[in-house]
Nucleic acid binder design. Structure first.
Lengths: 339, 339
DNA sequence: TTTGCCAATCGTAACGTTACGATTGCCAGC
DNA sequence: GCTGGCAATCGTAACGTTACGATTGGCAAA
């Protein structure tokens, strides 16, 4: 179907003088069909350009071979969304390899995520859902579990429920980042958190505290900021910290926007980043390479994350009884430009 | 289908003591059904949470209500791909409004586009295709036209064939950009073109020449560079131009990477951008806002482009005889940060 | 009462696939 | 020659939907 009238099983069957059943079985190497018949059928199917009709198959088998990823866009600024590109790439590549299609369902922040989910489920035509941007005790998790809809989450929700997820090791990332700054001589390190994502922030906070305590340094909650950091908000926040009597000399940034705000603030104070002030940024796509500023970045391969999400979801669809994938992906620190 | 067993027409029909046919017709306000029956059916369908099964319908009607967008990723650098995010957003939103799903087919540059197209067509399950990154005399156009596969292209191919496309007014953009630089006093303006896309480059070249000639200035082809500009390549190219005895004082950039290279080169030469040297950049997502450099950007609303592509494609699918959409979208110049 | 008409509803087939049980043909064993 | 068993193949039904022609019932006209 879809575009033009493509050959179907019946056409191939009559062409070969076989039944539809035999052709169907032959194409999937059914043991009931004689090997030479299988060869004949495959040759004919190939010649005719036969490809199974997805809808016929889906109707019969209750399987769509389509996965749907729900991707909320920040809209305010696509720079914050750039990590979604390698994510999409990883997801579609992995899906293609397994014979699935990836449907993308982009949403705006104004829309209710729950609402969207219902719409999507009703629209049907998908074997499973990839949800992102998890929040603490995310209501979508019980919602989907109750309805027995296969799904996988990018990010943990902190709920005790048993569900599939792939997450980035935020605790490890924050730990290593803080440790690195301390090793460079920063005795007071600022930590930038995002307000919207509790789990993410909690994990980073744990890593930060662990590294600070391990170094025998005191924890000063003044140095931890958690808000919805735009570039301006980030600039204001770091400016205020730099005005403290005992200002921080290192910063663990939340994301690219946080970095840009911090750079702006340090420039204004006349601090040289990489000498007077050290920054570790979370960067999924090496944008910060282009800033020509000495800093370190903790990067995570989002293509791998995307692939992993798709694989976990497909596993859940094909083997519902298998244990859920719960995969935490490590990042790695890279020096973007040294002093 | 899809996930769980949802109510179907038959269930609702037996529940109401009606036939499947009547229920089906009632749900689409068929004139053959009594108004109060329609009410009853709709109420029951609503209560049961009935939603038509896409595959049953697709099988019967030969329509998938799915569109597929083929998106080649640069991989080397997602920064060059960031415009795809608003594009995706526009496409999915418009598709959703019209009851279509958007399937994304991400490809890597190593893959053969033609090959990909065949795979995709064979996979089926799509009513139409959105192709991007058109090249001169793009072979995909006759390929798809021959097979009568509904498609729309983002970008023109320069071929004389009659097909649907949405394109950005590159000639107008280059014209306005050049004109603006000349108005700011630049008597020699450099133009940066990309090697991969002939149509794009040719259009920009036309706009550049038109503006230069209109101002009565000579055309110097030394100032026009066409290559695969990475940030480094761009920096090298503009550095060489600045070493000329009569260097340019203005630049029309190809994209974000070109801008970053140019900024790096001017910084090294000690030129103040916005005073000694003027830049107009093509920017689809306002990334350049974050550079805090005085420059002008020619922006195109990629959400609009995405919506337009989807609308053109759906039109072609639903009304095959209607004229093809051939839509050129204007950009607009914005001063990002003035001196 | 019969006929004709129209509105309302129903039954059947078909889209292309796969699951499952039925059928065919062949050959060994008696 | 008949039976049992097995390999190979076939036929039918079903998934949920819609198109199309058939059927029903009621009521007005003859």
């Amino acid at each position: 179907m879809a575009f033009n009238s493509r050959p179907n099983l019946r056409q191939i069957a009559t062409e070969l003088g076989l039944s539809v059943t035999t052709v169907s079985r032959a194409l999937k190497d059914g043991p009931e069909v004689r090997p030479d018949t299988i060869q004949r059928v495959k040759a004919a199917a190939n010649a005719a350009g036969y490809v199974p009709n997805l809808h016929g198959r889906a109707l019969r088998m209750g399987l769509t071979r389509t996965l749907t990823a729900i991707l909320p866009m920040e809209t305010r600024d696509y720079l914050s969304d750039i990590a979604k590109l390698p994510l999409i790439e990883g997801m579609t590549l992995a899906a293609r390899e397994r014979g699935f299609n990836l449907s993308v369902f982009s949403t705006t922040p104004e829309e209710d995520p729950q609402e969207n989910l219902s719409t999507l489920i009703q629209t049907g035509g998908s074997d499973g859902i990839i949800i992102t941007r998890m929040v603490s005790e995310d209501p979508r998790i019980p919602f989907l579990l109750e309805r027995k809809i296969p799904f996988i989450a990018f990010g943990r929700s902190g709920s005790a429920l048993d569900y599939s997820f792939v997450d980035v090791d935020n605790e490890g990332i924050a730990f290593e980042a803080t440790q690195m700054l301390i090793a460079r001589g920063c005795r007071r390190v600022a930590l930038q958190l995002l307000s919207r994502d509790d789990q993410y922030s909690a994990a980073r906070m744990r890593g930060y505290i662990k590294a600070t305590e391990q170094a025998g340094l005191p924890i000063d909650l003044q140095l931890v900021g958690q808000e919805d950091f735009t570039m301006e908000a980030s600039e204001g926040w770091i400016s205020r910290l730099l005005d403290l009597p005992d200002p921080p000399t290192g910063l663990v940034c939340a994301n690219e926007l946080g970095l840009l705000g911090a750079l702006s603030a340090t420039r204004r104070k006349g601090l040289a980043v990489g000498r007077d002030f050290h920054i570790v940024v979370r960067d999924s796509t090496h944008i910060c390479r282009y800033l020509s500023v000495p800093l370190a970045a903790h990067t995570v391969d989002m293509v791998v994350v995307g692939r992993s999400l798709v694989e976990g979801l497909i596993q859940q669809i094909t083997e519902p009884e298998a244990p859920r994938m719960q995969h935490v992906i490590e990042g790695k620190i890279e020096i973007i430009a040294s002093l």
